[in-house]
Write a protein that binds this DNA or RNA. Structure first.
Lengths: 210, 210
DNA sequence: GTCTATACGCGGATAGAC
DNA sequence: GTCTATCCGCGTATAGAC
């Protein structure tokens, strides 16, 4: 079976399968052989659809960012839009935490990331923010969202109580963070988002309306 | 020369050299062979000092976090301490951006990270913050600092103006972000830090003093 | 405590048959 | 458009000499 009657591969299938492997086993686990095995195909066949492995990764990254809903920016006042978008942005990142370092690294070469930056920056400038502020607000938001999706804070603390005994006087209950993972991580995100947007609203009164 | 007159390797040298390779070429570039070559030694010699490569990485991570000055927490009011520490924390992360994903992943198993968590959490609780708030404030700060150190916002946008032509109406000047890298990234960090700490101060008035 | 030698698998990518 | 065959280097880790 050299050439099948109909193609068995296409970019969409390759992207979806690559994403699944990265999500389940990490970025380092994605190899052309591993990807091909999952697709019931031999590794060289992938090169009919992508020139290099790096192109596959770019396509995976673009598909993730393309899912972020940007429609709030034309519709809602900027503080509401910033909050709504932040939630959508975090959801997209957090669904693929192993891709976050890659996504952050070179967004400028992926169309979906540029559309996102254009929407955020444009909405802030249209609302009256000076360009320098609009840029830094966008950067601040990405820092916070990427950091929150990069890895759970709560899960960073082992559930074994013996690890904290004696040496860390205030961490007596740290082993219980595991149980409250969602409460801690989601709560911290909301807390930070409130503070950031609240701070920007105060600043807006001084810088733009003042 | 089987056994040298005096040991040529020690943990300290291995840690420093591994850190240099990771900083210069990325986490993936660190292999036992590459590390040994840099140390003018053969790869198996490393196993006299570390049992596995993972142990080397843990030691590198611990050394980075151990450099974060925590003395502000016994000394300054909590909002000042939070700001002072955030700068030190960011400096440590940003000096080794390629290590950030690793550092975030399992802090609980490295002593320096536990000392850091103990100091932050302890200072907030001692100041009167309820435990749940202290935890989430610590998590929020790590999100923001890790995100800001993970990758430059400004450098994510290619310096080639042609890339933005036509398709992105508000990104006409995005190619100039490169030139203003420090201004953008440092400015965004300060902007976010102001907003976060300011928000916590307001919240403190309601939750603790109110 | 460092060396040499070695085991054994995985990595990305290409050439050419069908 | 997928296959088989192949290149060639790198990966961690162990055994045993000195």
């Amino acid at each position: 079976m050299a050439r099948p009657a109909r193609p068995v591969l296409n970019r969409q299938r390759i992207i979806e399968t690559a994403t699944a492997i990265i999500d389940a086993e990490g970025l380092a686990a994605l190899s052309t052989r591993r990807l091909a095995r999952e697709l019931r195909v031999q590794a060289p066949s992938l090169y009919n659809h992508f020139a290099t492995k790096e192109e596959i990764l770019d396509a995976v990254g673009d598909a993730i960012i393309a899912q972020v809903d940007l429609s709030t920016f034309g519709r809602d006042p900027w503080p509401v839009a910033l909050r709504t978008w932040a939630h959508a942005y975090r959801a997209a990142f957090a669904a693929h935490p192993n891709m976050v370092p890659f996504l952050v690294h070179a967004p400028g070469r992926r169309p979906a990331a540029l559309r996102l930056a254009d929407a955020v920056y444009g909405a802030l400038v249209d609302a009256g923010w000076p360009p320098g502020y609009a840029t830094r607000i966008g950067a601040t938001m990405r820092y916070f969202v990427a950091g929150s999706a990069l890895g759970s804070f709560a899960l960073g603390f082992p559930a074994d109580p013996a690890l904290y005994d004696g040496h860390y006087p205030h961490l007596g209950d740290a082993h219980r963070l595991h149980e409250h993972r969602a409460q801690v991580d989601d709560g911290a995100f909301e807390l930070g988002l409130d503070a950031l947007v609240g701070g920007f609203v105060t600043l807006y009164a001084e810088v733009v309306a003042g």
